[in-house]
């Protein structure tokens, strides 16, 4: 993929999840809502974020995740589809 001016441009996705062991109240709420709709047998629902971006230099993505996109104390991130 290239921009009209010829620059290379990469699409990337970053998945951000609450770290294992951290209670996720949103996930709990959804898990408790599903049986009310007749969906049984669902457990361990966890809710995170998906960040999609286009960037010139994918090598910077790791640093972006460490500094801003995720808080490594409470979140894990995974770079996919770049």
């Amino acid at each position: 993929m290239a921009e009209p001016d010829g620059r290379a441009c990469v699409r990337a996705r970053v998945l951000i999840r609450p770290k294992a062991g951290i209670l996720d109240p949103q996930g709990v709420a959804v898990e408790q809502a599903l049986p009310a709709l007749g969906f049984t047998g669902v457990s361990d629902v966890r809710i995170g974020r998906l960040i999609e971006l286009e960037l010139d230099d994918p090598a910077q993505l790791e640093a972006m995740c460490e500094r801003l996109l995720a808080n490594p104390l409470i979140e894990d991130y995974e770079i996919v589809g770049r």
Partner: peptide, 16 residues
């Protein structure tokens, strides 16, 4: 906390 000047982080209230 985000700035690293204090320890820890703040998460959504347990009871939502």
């Amino acid at each position: 906390c985000e700035a690293g000047l204090l320890p820890g982080a703040l998460l959504p209230n347990l009871e939502r």
